[in-house]
């Protein structure tokens, strides 16, 4: 059941990211819903789930992007793995801490990505930082914080995590 849910989530996120988000982009930059989902799944599901979901979503999203399969899958899988490790170290996660965490991780991933992709010389680190990395990190953090706050308001996340994760 959970696998089906994850497959549906991958299909849904890929479609929304590709079709709807370009219309709600700010400063020409759209949030990465996949990144937010991977972080949340890694945090609450653990390293393995974060890694597998990240790899699968990175692969699916790369099919609808010029980004190559390898870098997309590895970067997203790595994010899921790190989120899983981080989730194991945190006893209680407030929305504010999550927002700051997402901001930092999104910035780090955004700064690494241009080197991984070997982009054009015009797209240097400063260009990437000001035009893509910072706006995207801010959007990711806001969306991730909002989703977490919503889930936390309706579900007992702490109990679920303590029962689910070993």
């Amino acid at each position: 059941m959970k696998t089906l849910l994850y497959i549906a989530l991958i299909a849904g996120i890929t479609s929304i990211q590709s079709v709807l988000l370009p219309h709600v982009s700010l400063w020409g930059v759209k949030p990465d819903l996949g990144f937010v989902a991977i972080c949340l799944i890694g945090l609450f599901g653990g390293e393995l789930e974060g890694l597998l979901f990240g790899l699968a979503l990175g692969w699916a999203m790369s099919l609808f992007s010029a980004q190559d399969l390898l870098s997309a899958a590895i970067v997203k899988g790595g994010v899921g793995f790190i989120a899983g490790l981080a989730g194991r170290q945190v006893a209680y996660l407030s929305p504010l801490v999550l927002v700051l965490g997402l901001l930092v991780i999104s910035c780090l991933v955004g700064l690494i990505t241009p080197f991984v992709l070997r982009l054009s010389v015009q797209q240097n680190v400063w260009w990437a930082l000001w035009t893509v990395v910072l706006p995207q990190a801010a959007l990711d953090a806001i969306i991730g914080g909002s989703v977490y706050w919503l889930i936390n308001s309706y579900f007992n996340l702490e109990q679920w995590v303590s029962e689910y994760r070993i």
Binding site: T14, S15, S18, V19, D32, M61, A66, T113, Q123, V132
Partner: peptide
Amino acid sequence: VIGRDTGNWYKTII
């Protein structure tokens, strides 16, 4: 055209 790039690094259409 049914969509655009899923990321922010490339300008593409689907």
